[in-house]
Design a protein around this nucleic acid. Structure first.
Lengths: 188, 188
DNA sequence: CGATGTGGTTGCACTCAGTGCAACGTGACC
DNA sequence: GGTCACGTTGCACTGAGTGCAACCACATCG
């Protein structure tokens, strides 16, 4: 199903801006790059930058529109018969593969404590699909549903921070799986 | 041990600004209050506001200096013989008592999705004492240490979101305990 | 007690993030 | 070919956050 021309162009512009942002910020650092710099490098106006992204940090960390679709697809397809946690493990491990385009750059950026905060907020967005799925799976226990969602976030963040930019991206996937297993086993 | 006069005044100014910030923002909303408004209400200059807090959001969510001391004290005193997770449970439950001064207002603010993000970043600060303690407890397994820290954060955040502003603050403490127990048991 | 030093406070000027608005240009649709 | 919808652009504006230099109050020492 080919996307409409309009939407196609829109996503190309989106990708051009994010690409320029990642490039410039990884070279010079977050504070040394202005929105005007990024917009100019991407060949769009400053105002258009803000049509694509609400903030400067969003240009670095917001997920690609396709990613949100993909996560939703994975959640639809997964079999939760063995419990929500194993299902979520499978979904996250699958999802996290094929993120290597942005993985390394983002990991380097997050060395800066300030950007770590931005990074975490970006994940709130992606998490919404997961929140809805969990609410449907555990309709009678919203507390546990929320806790499972936050715990999955904790695992992903831990793996992300434990992964080193020099490592193979596959190692990140492995760390995610290990984190899920540790939490599944419990801390008692 | 009475604090030096200088430090005493400093903390009074700090508290005055935070108090004014919580008051105004809970009345009008985050975006409808400027830093100038807060500074004026606290009886200090705009520039002094930024001497106390690096950002507007920090004035709402940054922990009181005494809180950091208290958390450090609790961590020093706790007995970790039964494992790090039970110890952390005890520390957090203790710590979370006596936070009722800011609990209700903050919970109301976080209804706004944007401020939820700010709130989470503020916790990174408090968590540093916990990070150091965990690194000392699990020197040979930094991955688990990080995961435990993130999981404790997940529990606190879940309890905070599950707690309702009309509830008794004691209920929040109870929810924290319940969250720790659920994670201790595991999700398998 | 008076001189000196240290550190928080203040005002000023500046950069830059983010927003509202109105004009424009280009695909979509009949 | 006309018109409609929508993303793009420029412009002007608010407000967050910072660097700097002057100022003032508490502290210290002779």
């Amino acid at each position: 199903m080919p996307l409409p021309v309009r939407e196609q162009q829109r996503r190309e512009g989106w990708a051009a801006v994010q690409s320029a942002a990642l490039q410039l910020v990884s070279e010079r650092g977050f504070d040394a790059v202005t929105v005007d710099d990024i917009a100019a490098a991407a060949g769009v106006s400053r105002r258009t930058f803000f049509n694509h992204f609400p903030t400067k940090a969003a240009a670095l960390f917001n997920p690609h529109p396709d990613d949100a679709d993909q996560l939703a697809q994975l959640l639809l397809a997964v079999d939760a018969a063995a419990g929500v946690w194993p299902a979520l493990r499978a979904v996250c491990v699958d999802f996290v593969r094929g993120q290597d385009r942005v993985l390394r750059v983002r990991r380097q950026l997050v060395e800066d404590a300030e950007l770590d905060a931005y990074h975490r907020t970006a994940h709130l967005h992606v998490g919404q699909a997961m929140d809805r799925w969990l609410a449907a799976q555990l309709p009678d226990d919203p507390f546990t549903a929320r806790l499972v969602a936050e715990s999955a976030g904790a695992v992903l963040m831990t793996a992300f921070l434990a992964w080193h930019p020099d490592d193979d991206p596959a190692r990140f996937v492995e760390l995610v799986g290990r984190g899920f297993d540790l939490v599944a086993h419990g801390f008692s």
